[in-house]
C-alpha cells in the first residue's frame, strides 16, 4: 500500500491529443498521457521539438490549439495552478536575497511551511543559508531553485531540465527528490534525460514528442 501524504486528494492528470501552435507553426501535436498518483512522466525528444512548449501548455502559460487537459479530483473552488509547482530552466533565484530569504518568500507566497530549514538542508545549503545567493555557484543556484519544491506541498511538479548545471551528485539528489515525491503519491512531469533511481519502472511513463516542427524548419 503506497503512502499518499503528498497527494491526499488523489489528484490525477489526463492529457489527450494536446497540440500547440505558435504563429501558424505547429510546435507539437498529439501528446496524450495519463498521470496517476505516484507516476513520473518523462517528456523526451531532440532539442527544439517542443518539450518546454508542451510543459508551458500544461501549466497554462500558453494556449493549446487542440486537445484536452483535465485535472481529476481537484477542488472546484481552486484553480489548477494551485496544485502545481513549476521549476523552469531559469531557477527564479534572487541573488541579492540570502538563501533563507529566497525560500522564506516562496514558503509565504505559496502558504507553505513556516520552517524552511529542512528544505535548505535537503539542498545541502545549510552552511551558507544566511549568505547572499549571489555567491552561489550555478549548481548551487539550481539546487536553491529546486528547494522551492519542498517548502510548500503541491501534488504535481512540472520540471523543465531540472538537472542542467548539476554534477553527478546533484543528478542523484534530484532523482531522489522525484522518487520521494512519487513514493508519497505525488506526480512529476519532467523534460529530462535523467534516469530516476529507487523508482519502480512501471511508475515511469515516457512520452516521445514528435518531429513535426523539425520537418517544417528544414
Amino acid at each position: 500500500m503506497r503512502k499518499n501524504g503528498k497527494n491526499p486528494e488523489n489528484i490525477a492528470l489526463n492529457v489527450t491529443n494536446l497540440a500547440c501552435e505558435r504563429g501558424g507553426f505547429e510546435i507539437f501535436a498529439d501528446v496524450s498521457f495519463t498521470a496517476m498518483p505516484g507516476e513520473v512522466i518523462l517528456l523526451r525528444g531532440p532539442n527544439g521539438v517542443g518539450k518546454s512548449t508542451c510543459l508551458a501548455t500544461l501549466y497554462g502559460a500558453l494556449p493549446k490549439s487542440a486537445g484536452e487537459i483535465s485535472f481529476e479530483n481537484i477542488d472546484s473552488e481552486r484553480e489548477p495552478r494551485e496544485y502545481l509547482h513549476i521549476v523552469g530552466y531559469v531557477p527564479g533565484v534572487k541573488t541579492t536575497l540570502t538563501v533563507k530569504e529566497n525560500l522564506m518568500f516562496w514558503a509565504q507566497l505559496y502558504g507553505g511551511t513556516e520552517n524552511v530549514l529542512p528544505a535548505i538542508e535537503a539542498a545541502g545549503l545549510d552552511a551558507i543559508q544566511d549568505s547572499e545567493a549571489s555567491i552561489l555557484s550555478a549548481g548551487q543556484t539550481r539546487r536553491l531553485g529546486l528547494a522551492r519544491l519542498l517548502v510548500a506541498n503541491r501534488p504535481i511538479w512540472i520540471l523543465d531540465e531540472p538537472t542542467s548545471a548539476l554534477d553527478k551528485q546533484g543528478d542523484q539528489w534530484v532523482g531522489q527528490l522525484i522518487a520521494d515525491h512519487c513514493a508519497e503519491g505525488g506526480i512529476v512531469i519532467a523534460a529530462t534525460h535523467l534516469e530516476i533511481p529507487h523508482l519502480a519502472p512501471e511508475a515511469v511513463k515516457t512520452v516521445m514528442i514528435g518531429h513535426r516542427a523539425m520537418d517544417h524548419a528544414s
Binding site: G88, P91, G92, W106, L109, Y110
Partner: peptide, 14 residues
Amino acid sequence: HEDGSLLAMRQASL
C-alpha cells in the same frame, strides 16, 4: 520576468 520568478509567482493562490 527574466529570472523565472514571475512564472513561479503565477502559481501562487494569490
